[in-house]
Design a protein around this nucleic acid. Structure first.
Length: 419
RNA sequence: CGGGGUGUGGCGCAGUUGAUAGCGCGCCCGGUUUGGGACCGGGAGGUCGAAGGUUUGAGUCCUUUCACCCCGACCA
């Protein structure tokens, strides 16, 4: 992509109505556009990051056998009444709307009911189980207060997966396999070291804890207590002596931290399947309840967390796995430089390297500043003064001094990275 | 939803005791520049969030309302 063709621009000034660092940087660098509080559009650069995150999540979910679907945002009232989650007294952050004939609809905030209703069309026998299904889709929640840029929005992108099992034992296996996949996702995003599996409130099921995945962050909304040695944490909301004992944790080993919830997995037992009258028949011909789990990852929130964390005073510093482009190619100088830069751009693009080519007629300082703000991992400069030596300047965004590389050395360094 | 704050060209902001708006950046034109956000000259662009009121006169005072930010509460 040529920067001259990119319709978005960077800004020299920080947006006045954002305090959250992730939102400031992402808006300034032209990754997102604020439509209203808690509602952001993704611009070309931002969408590429979002797609990269989605693909990592998708690969991991597919890796454990998840079957991707796309459910609807418009929701019929009846299935939610069967589980008693339609009433605003029960679930207060519904967005609701109406058909022209007055029929009330819900705007999807989660999808347990629809996924169960849908699965019920196909699941009848023990032979049809177990399975996982998931989607990556927008969610709408009427939050009383949107805040912190991408970290808490009213419209956001979420991956939600649901598991259907025949027995509790089978469910436990599915659940742990999903948790392991979650850990791999955070590893691949570069958040592994600072993300803790955290025991949290089980929601409707007090008998059981849920697992949150909390990335340590000063801007986090949750207070968690981390056991560094065991690499687990417990959410403040369930921090009682009884629970600590149940979990085998010792209060002395816990350190209080703030975290951003980047994932949450729940045991749903058979609440939704029973309520929606979805059962299976076992090999004896007996009707049995289906045990469910649900597993959420906030995709757009993850983008915010990464932006919030991987940045410096000059701008964003994207991890290679999710960077919008791998290489920021800066062209400095006259006709010769144009010729060489164009050739390098074609060559890199030709071998599958994603290049953002700054072909603008701007001064070097402006290009370098934008390169740093946008935060692409590798910066390569083609300039008049390097043409005679047949070299390119290379500098990594995440630090290190600039070096001069020959064409061959450069190609080796930029060989398409394995995601 | 309670409390606090803020709305003025595209962006960031200033605007005193009321007198029909200004700066920086950006943008357009011309010229000079070209390895760390260039410089000079010229120019376009705003019914001051909205509605109502007070006043000879309102960006400024009053009322209502909308939006945005922060703290808290809330967040399957």
């Amino acid at each position: 992509m040529r920067v001259s063709q990119l319709f978005t621009k960077t800004s020299k000034t920080v947006p006045g109505d954002e305090v959250a660092r992730n939102a400031q940087l992402l808006i300034q660098a032209g990754f997102i556009h604020k439509e209203m509080a808690g509602v952001y559009a993704y611009l070309p650069l931002g969408l590429r990051v979002l797609e990269n995150i989605k693909n990592i999540v998708r690969e991991e979910m597919n890796g454990i056998g998840g079957q991707e679907v796309s459910m609807t945002t418009l929701q019929p009232r009846d299935i939610w009444e069967k589980t008693d989650r339609w009433d605003d007294q029960k679930v207060d952050n519904w967005f609701k709307t109406k058909l022209a004939n007055g029929t009330e609809l819900g705007v999807g905030l989660t999808h347990e009911e629809p996924v169960v209703d849908m699965a019920g069309n196909f699941v009848h026998s023990y032979k049809d189980l177990p399975f996982y299904t998931y989607q990556i889709a927008p969610k709408f929640r009427n939050e009383l207060r949107a805040k912190s840029g991408l970290l808490r929005g009213r419209e956001f992108l979420m991956k939600d997966m649901y598991s259907f099992a025949r027995t509790q034992e089978e469910h436990e296996q599915l659940y742990e396999r999903a948790v392991e996949a979650y850990c791999r996702v955070y590893e691949r995003l570069g958040l592994g070291d600072m993300t803790y599996r955290t025991y949290a409130d089980g929601g409707i099921f007090t008998s059981r804890f849920s697992d949150e995945f909390q990335t340590l962050s000063e801007v986090g909304e949750d207070r968690i207590f981390v056991d560094e040695a065991k690499k687990v944490a417990i959410n403040e909301e369930i921090l009682t002596d009884e629970n600590l004992q149940k979990l085998g944790l010792n209060r002395e080993n816990l350190v209080e931290k703030r975290g951003v919830e980047v994932g949450n997995t729940f045991h749903l037992e058979s609440k939704y399947t029973d309520a929606l009258d979805v059962y299976y028949v076992d090999d004896q011909g007996n009707k049995q309840s289906i045990i469910m789990g649900c597993y959420g990852i906030g995709i757009s929130r993850l983008m915010g967390v990464v932006a919030e964390h991987f940045s410096d005073d000059k701008g964003l510093v994207w991890p290679e796995n999710i960077a919008p482009y791998q290489v920021y190619l800066v062209r400095i100088g006259g006709e010769e430089a144009v010729k060489h830069a164009n050739a390098l751009y074609e060559e890199l693009t030709g071998i599958g390297v994603d290049v953002l080519y700054d072909d603008r007629d701007e001064r070097p300082g402006a290009k370098f500043a934008d390169a740093e703000l946008i935060g692409i991992p590798h910066r390569v400069t083609v300039s008049d003064r390097l043409i005679t030596s047949e070299t390119y300047e290379y500098v990594a965004r995440n630090g290190g001094a600039a070096t001069e590389l020959t064409r061959h050395e450069l190609l080796v360094k930029l060989g398409r990275p394995n995601n």
